[in-house]
Amino acid sequence: MEAAWPADLPAHDERHLLAAGRSLLRADATGIGRTRRPDVFGPLKQVLAPAFAVGRFRVQAAIARRDGINGAVVHLVWAGRDRGGTFTDGRITDWHFTRTTTSKGVSTWTVRPPV
């Protein structure tokens, strides 16, 4: 992926976005951490059975790249074994982020909820 999509973000932004993207994917796939992110996953009124167990899920590759002027996308390729026991690798998930600046001039990355 690195050769096909060369790096275009500062290294510290890329590291931060990759960590955030992995965390969001883990929460989405395994359910762990969803309640801490109602801005992304919505209010969880009932406990949803996770599609993947923690030990049956892994990120195979990940990159973070620019997406427009104030945006970035974290592109993750991952593998997992679902509740039915079917293992599939090469799954793809993208998380999109927007760079915002606080009133104090601090720049942060904010995830855009999936549509």
Score class of each variant (00 low, 15 high):
Asp67Lys: 14
Gly68Ile: 12
Gln60Phe: 00
His96Ser: 07
Arg81Phe: 00
Asp94Cys: 02
Phe87Asn: 12
Ile63Trp: 00
Val47Ile: 14
Val74Phe: 01
Ala79Asn: 05
Ala64Met: 02
Ile63Pro: 00
Val74His: 03
Val47Met: 13
Val54Ala: 15
Val59Pro: 02
Ala72Gly: 05
Gln60Pro: 00
Thr88Pro: 00
Arg83Ser: 13
Ile69Gly: 00
Leu48Ile: 04
Val74Ile: 03
Val73Tyr: 00
Arg91Ile: 02
Asp94Phe: 00
His75Pro: 01
Ile92Trp: 08
Ile69Phe: 01
Ala79Asp: 07
Trp95Met: 03
Ile63Tyr: 01
Phe87Cys: 13
Thr86His: 11
Ala61Leu: 05
Asp89Arg: 15
Phe87Tyr: 15
Ile69Met: 09
Ile69Ser: 11
Trp95Thr: 04
Val73Glu: 05
Arg65Asp: 01
Lys45Cys: 09
Ile92Arg: 15
Phe52Pro: 03
Ile63Gln: 10
Val73Gln: 08
Ala79Cys: 12
Trp78Asn: 06
Arg58Glu: 09
Trp78His: 07
Gln46Cys: 08
Ala61Ser: 11
Phe97Met: 11
Gly71Met: 09
Arg65Tyr: 02
Gly84Phe: 07
Val74Met: 01
Thr86Ala: 08
Thr98Val: 14
Val54Tyr: 07
Arg81His: 04
Arg66Asn: 08
Gly55Phe: 05
Ala64Phe: 01
Arg66Met: 03
Gly80Leu: 06
Arg56Thr: 04
Gly55Tyr: 04
Ala72Cys: 06
Val74Asn: 01
Ala53Met: 11
Arg58Met: 10
Gly90Trp: 08
Ala51Asn: 09
Ala51Cys: 05
Phe57Met: 08
His96Thr: 05
Arg58Pro: 01
Ala49Ile: 13
Asp94Thr: 03
Gly55Thr: 13
Val59Ala: 10
Gln60Val: 06
Asp67Gln: 14
Ile92Gln: 14
Phe57Asn: 04
Asp67Cys: 11
Phe87Gly: 10
Ile92Cys: 10
Asp67Leu: 14
Gly71Ala: 10
Thr98Trp: 05
Ala51Gln: 13
Val47Ser: 13
Thr93Ile: 03
Leu76Thr: 11
Ile63Lys: 06
Ala79His: 04
Ile92Leu: 15
Ala72Lys: 12
Val73Asn: 04
Ile92Phe: 07
Arg83Tyr: 00
Ala49Gly: 09
Phe52Thr: 06
Leu48Ser: 08
Arg81Asn: 06
Asp94Ile: 02
Arg58Asn: 05
Arg58His: 09
Gly55Pro: 06
Ala53Val: 05
Arg65Cys: 02
Ala49Phe: 08
